[in-house]
Design a protein around this nucleic acid. Structure first.
Lengths: 225, 225
DNA sequence: TGCAAACTTGCACGCTGTGCAAATTGAAAC
DNA sequence: GTTTCAATTTGCACAGCGTGCAAGTTTGCA
């Protein structure tokens, strides 16, 4: 290990093992969509026992969506901070620009590309669950921090904003070029593309509802979703 | 069967079997949270073999979320129709007011209450998947119907609107009184409460983004209530 | 009636996720 | 260095899920 990790040795080992599992999955994904990616294969490839694998992840699917889980976790923390001075979009973009999140985006893209190729399906339910969970997490945190605000409005807007984020994410995944790279790095262009999609999504939220005739008082052209 | 069902006898049988499965689950849920609700129990209770159960539902979870699945399916169809003349909110409320959807709401509430009690968890991932699927379905249908519209904007707004709907749904489930009824009927009050929540959610979407500082150029859309 | 297609069922199989107890490893005290 | 103890790993057994397959059974149709 090049990194002189902080914390006790046990904690270092646990982090290393978790990363080994993720790396093992990345390897297996690259080798080919043939293998059905069973828990035994992953454990063997990571050099641990099957039982230990389930000590680290509650589910095989949770391994696949772990990069996204980390990314959303970081974003939720970033968004739940009381940043009164900047706009929501800036807050999101600022969170996305951290080195940590940029690296996570690479992993997410890597996994996303191969998982899409494997299932021939654009969407993994595991990823959807991560978004649901992130939505609930953010809702809980915001409600805890601003108890005086109407919690239902918070709930609606949380679902709405993260929904828009998910839309940007899905669009990004679909447009992703096939083999990102041998390792899980990611080009600045792809990161910029994601930022652009998120920005467009938020602007669509901001301006798009003026286009939709949501209720009778709304003006503007009917486009009937 | 009192209903002289339409269609060939095979189709009637299939529908009856599917309903028998759902009814069996409802029965088992009412009997107590003790039973872990295994596929064998459900099949036995429905009077079919375990193997046949999986001919009707791809997953045990899919049975639990089947009422919600039906409801969302109906709503997606309703929303995807080209109803140029009315507002989005009216379109949603109109869809919600059909007898079919009202009855489905009863089943959804029934299942939701017992499932929440069972898992002690407010949320079933199966339900979340249904919302994700409905979002994708609606997106596909709208894009197919309006090919000239910016598909990404449609995607964002679809996620956003259904996200708001899901927020209303979750709120409704939490506020639901414990034992709805012995059968899966539902009181008009509860239906009205759901309509009110959906209405409030849509109005929050319409007006709420004016409250959030999404980006720097946003001086908020016109109209404050 | 008889045939073909659709449907059901039992069976076997591989896989998931969990509880448990024994073995191994790490940290800390002596 | 050794001892001791808690954290961690591992093997094993087990219940359950979901599927392919090869019978049996029912339905539609000629």
């Amino acid at each position: 290990m090049t990194t002189q990790g902080v914390g006790t040795r046990r904690e270092q080992n646990k982090l290393a093992t978790k990363q080994a599992i993720v790396d093992a999955v990345a390897q297996l994904l690259k080798q080919g969509p043939s293998t059905a990616l069973t828990a035994n294969e992953i454990a063997d490839s990571a050099g641990i026992s099957r039982r230990t694998l389930f000590n680290y992840f509650p589910t095989v699917d949770a391994i696949f969506s772990y990069p996204l889980h980390q990314l959303l976790d970081a974003m939720v923390d970033s968004l739940a901070e009381p940043s009164e001075t900047i706009t929501l979009l800036d807050s999101i973009l600022q969170g996305l620009k951290s080195d940590e999140v940029a690296q996570l985006l690479g992993q997410v893209a890597y996994f996303g590309v191969y998982l899409c190729a494997d299932d021939a399906n654009i969407y993994h339910p595991a990823n959807g669950n991560e978004w649901q969970q992130a939505t609930n997490d953010l809702y809980s945190k915001v409600v805890a921090r601003y108890p005086q605000v109407d919690s239902f409005a918070v709930r609606v807007l949380t679902h709405s904003v993260l929904g828009a984020g998910q839309a940007a994410f899905e669009q990004w995944l679909e447009q992703l070029p096939a083999p990102v790279s041998d390792n899980m790095d990611i080009s600045d262009d792809l990161i910029a593309a994601f930022h652009a999609l998120v920005t467009k999504a938020m602007n669509t939220l901001d301006q798009g509802f003026a286009l939709l005739p949501i209720n009778s008082t709304s003006t503007s052209t009917p486009k009937g979703i």
